[in-house]
Write a protein that binds this DNA or RNA. Structure first.
Lengths: 172, 172
DNA sequence: ATGTTTGTTCGGAATGAACCGAACAAAGTG
DNA sequence: CACTTTGTTCGGTTCATTCCGAACAAACAT
């Protein structure tokens, strides 16, 4: 028995998750909530998360909603038992990333593309120097965005291993 | 000549860029500065950007530094001419994304992996139930992270068109 | 030198995010 | 029907970010 205390080890990993969360634009508390859920035996209710994390009930309520929206945790509405709402971690992180791609990035990109389309329409019959220069730039941008959009679309349609395999095969 | 005023059209596209910037975690001003540079004939100095954007000199100074760090604009230190520093937009957006992948995501991932490695070491000789359960979870996480890391690595080594082609070929 | 132009840095105001505690609504339990 | 347990919402505090203007430092021009 020369191993460390499991609880302390868990705590360290969860702290690492807190730091990761910040990098990905989430709050520290979101990282901790996910971490606690990740190591939990079963889904946890809000009071249980309060107990485990030390955060206020209201914070847990808000954070779990945000994490649910992103797809990092699932709401298991246990219709039966005493406690009502319970949260479980989504462990397939690539699935979460795909969701974010579709929900946020894809939305942003189509919105941007719409702007560019409209702009090109309005420049259609501008044949002075200024107009054509702008048109070229906008068309360039549109092409770049199109490529990124296509790539994102393909990425959301495959698993990580499929993507890795595809590229490795491509490389020969 | 039924086209719109080019300046108004440019303004609309730049406003779209401002919105995009916010989605990607940048400030509104960053989006505008990039947009102005994107449509400019040549690189612009800080006073010129002040003139074009309406932002204060200090804001432009800070924003250009941030954009340069990310790789969205380049510092063209024109050693010769009157004005000293000039900024040009990086138009290869995929290149910028790759840079962010390497600078921020890859760093975050290796850091997280280190935490997981250390945690596994410390749990090595825990053979009670709690310890083994934690170990399994951490190993799962490590594998997921490894895949994501590998995928990121491959993505930074190829252009968008290469990646698209690779996946499309893979799909048959 | 003296003055002007360019860029960075500093302090402060305004805005937004994270978190807390308290008040509240809803739904079970006695 | 009280009473408790659970979850959401609201107001307030603290802290970080964004932006401004002013002070400053460095380079250039006269």
């Amino acid at each position: 028995m020369n191993g460390d205390d499991p609880e302390a080890v868990r705590e360290d990993v969860i702290e690492s998750m807190e730091r990761s969360a910040e990098v990905y634009g989430l709050s520290r508390s979101a990282g901790r909530v996910y971490g606690v859920l990740y190591f939990s035996t079963g889904p946890l209710s809000i009071p249980e998360l309060v107990e485990e994390t030390g955060y206020a009930k209201s914070t847990i309520s808000n954070v779990t909603r945000k994490l649910t929206r992103i797809g990092l945790v699932q709401r298991r509405s246990s219709s039966g038992g005493g406690r009502r709402v319970r949260f479980a971690p989504e462990t397939d992180l690539w699935f979460v990333v795909q969701d974010v791609f579709q929900q946020y990035l894809a939305r942003e990109m189509t919105s941007a593309q719409r702007s560019l389309d409209r702009a090109l329409d309005r420049l259609e019959s501008e044949d002075n120097q200024e107009g054509t220069a702008d048109r070229d730039r906008i068309e360039d941008l549109q092409e770049t965005y199109g490529d990124l959009q296509r790539l994102l679309e393909l990425a959301t349609e495959h698993s990580t291993t499929e993507l890795i395999e595809a590229i490795e095969q491509y490389d020969g």
